[in-house]
Design a binder for these strands. Structure first.
Lengths: 162, 162
DNA sequence: CAGGTGTTGTTCAAAGCTGCACGATTTGCT
DNA sequence: AGCAAATCGTGCAGCTTTGAACAACACCTG
């Protein structure tokens, strides 16, 4: 074979390194988070987004799109966190279809306790090992990538042309 | 002060960009793979690893560690692929505990058909947008990261009780 | 060779996730 | 107003993933 390689060797190597290391990193971070805060990565991210939102509340749809979660996944995720008292759910005042997730006091506390450990984890596993040039490069690459992917993900269904 | 922020703003931004874009990228690649080859990312990766292995076969444990899969997850993954005829499973000749996953003709064919699409997907979503310096930077960062994470993952479980 | 100690991979129950269909709106068009 | 189409979130069935317990075997020591 050989025609199957449509990535030149340099980019192929970059791709493999990126995929493998990222996989390992996410696994490691998730485990750390679980061990010293008893939260999943998803839990943590929900808490962060809600804590930064005005009124510490967000519409389900908004939350889902920021988390890159399917609607049904978010419903499940939020119910789970609700059972554990980390968030509550309220009907949306101006749109009776919708509902919003609201951070509870317990949720905020959990975040405050988890954050230092998690951020330390990010530092020791990734950031401490990067010099400033590398950080800049990382930012440049992934900012651009994120922007591009965000743009190309508009029509979720019924693509007229394909 | 500000002990809640243990990441300086530069690194915080890098971290967020990396996480979000990676999430989006993986989601997108998985969807592409599913749409035009009816394979999951895990399926694809298994096929690649087996196709590159001598005899197109690998011990379960070896495969698991390369995929960064838990043993039970790999058992499930391989059974699933076995049901679909992509791989088969044979007892290991020299160690009667173990077994090895073997690529079937159908599996190899599936890989050959999927690879061009998948690689094109990787190119259009990521690689085509990076210049050579960025590729080099990506490689350098994630090679080092992967190496470091591979090393620091030794003790498995059973901290105290058993 | 007996006996303990590690490995290897599987099994099982519980939890998580996906895609789809649905009920309940809201919105746009005429 | 009246009605079709789009939007919002949930419910559900089925698949995937996890973690712990396990059985089968290998290895090592005496």
């Amino acid at each position: 074979m050989g025609m199957t390689e449509s990535l030149d060797s340099t980019r192929g190597a970059a791709w493999r390194a990126y995929i493998e290391a990222s996989q390992r990193l996410f696994t490691q971070l998730e485990e750390d988070l679980r061990v010293d805060s008893d939260l999943s990565f998803a839990d943590y991210h929900v808490l962060v987004l809600l804590s930064e939102a005005p009124g510490q509340r967000l519409r389900m749809g908004e939350l889902a799109s920021r988390l890159i979660f399917s609607p049904s996944r978010l419903t499940y995720q939020v119910s789970s966190m609700q059972r554990r008292g980390l968030v509550s759910k309220e009907p949306c005042p101006d749109d009776r279809r919708g509902s919003e997730a609201v951070l509870t006091a317990a949720g905020l506390l959990a975040l405050r306790e988890a954050a230092p450990h998690h951020l330390a984890s990010v530092r020791t596993h990734l950031m401490d090992d990067l010099d400033d040039a590398e950080v800049a490069c990382l930012t440049r690459i992934f900012d651009r990538l994120g922007e591009r992917l965000r743009a190309s993900r508009v029509s979720s269904a019924t693509p007229t042309a394909r």
